[in-house]
Computed example of a mutant assay.
Amino acid sequence: MKKAFKILGKILLGIVGFVVVYVLFAFILSRIPVNSENKNKNEDVTIYIKTNGVHTDIVVPIKTEYKDWSQKVQFAHIKSQDSTMQYIGFGWGDKGFYLNTPEWADLKFSTAFNAVFYLGTSAMHATFLKQVKETESCVKIKISQAEYQQLIAYIEESFQYDKNGSPILINATTYGQNDSFYEANRKYHLFYTCNTWANNALKSANQKAALWTPSDTGIFCHYQ
């Protein structure tokens, strides 16, 4: 019995130690900036980073001379089918979280376990918006044409596509009137979260970002 308790104690100690190290590294690495001095003076496109307090979306204009997102991520894919929308927010995350957890109260242990331990699949979330306002949780960023094209490529590479080159739509009914979901590449885990994806999106466009972060605060602290 004593031996069993010793083993259990070591396991618990190991778990606590891992959590402490993870939180410490998450804090330190998220405070190390990259691209902190963007020397590009061109401001061709306005984008936004937007958080709901946990998850970060990259918000871009639906139509510009450089990209018309509605050609593939169509208005017909959302319940409202409202073609007057002006912006689209992109987020990447665990498919189970997106489809089965519209509210935190709906979170199941199995969903969280699968996400954390690399057992689930991922999805792209598109949110159509009529307008975007700057707030503490929504930051405006002006980028060049070249930077936007790099961001476009990054977002496009996150989708899975069918044989016709269209994003694979997921039939989801858990969100609002202006949301759609698509099959995505990569898997969610402790070291690659929805916010890691958004942080890497900013890196791809040569914008201010954290060296690495699993949280939205690790992104937004560089825009305060």
Rank of each mutant, 00 (worst) to 15 (best):
K2D: 00
I7L: 15
K10N: 13
I11T: 06
V19G: 01
V21Y: 05
V21C: 10
Y22E: 06
P33D: 02
T46K: 14
I49F: 03
I49E: 05
K50S: 12
N52F: 12
G53K: 09
G53E: 04
D57P: 08
V60G: 03
T64N: 13
E65N: 15
Y66Q: 13
D68Q: 04
W69Q: 03
S70K: 13
V73G: 07
F75C: 09
F75A: 10
F75N: 13
F75W: 11
K79Q: 03
Q81C: 07
S83L: 04
M85N: 03
M85S: 11
Q86I: 06
F90Q: 05
W92P: 10
G93H: 07
G96A: 13
F97H: 12
L99V: 14
T101D: 00
T101W: 00
E103H: 15
E103I: 10
D106P: 09
L107G: 04
F109V: 11
S110C: 02
T111P: 10
N114P: 00
G120N: 06
T121F: 05
T127H: 15
L129W: 10
K130W: 00
K130L: 01
K133W: 02
T135E: 09
S137L: 03
K140L: 03
I141V: 11
I143K: 13
A146N: 11
A146P: 01
Q149L: 11
Q150S: 12
I155A: 01
F159Y: 12
N164K: 15
N171T: 07
N171S: 14
T173V: 02
G176I: 05
D179H: 09
D179E: 01
D179I: 02
F181T: 14
Y182V: 08
E183Q: 13
A184C: 04
K187A: 01
K187P: 00
H189I: 13
L190I: 04
Y192G: 07
Y192H: 15
T193D: 12
C194Q: 09
W197P: 11
N200T: 06
A201L: 09
A201C: 06
K203V: 01
Q207H: 14
T213K: 07
P214L: 01
I219E: 02
F220R: 06
C221A: 00
H222C: 02
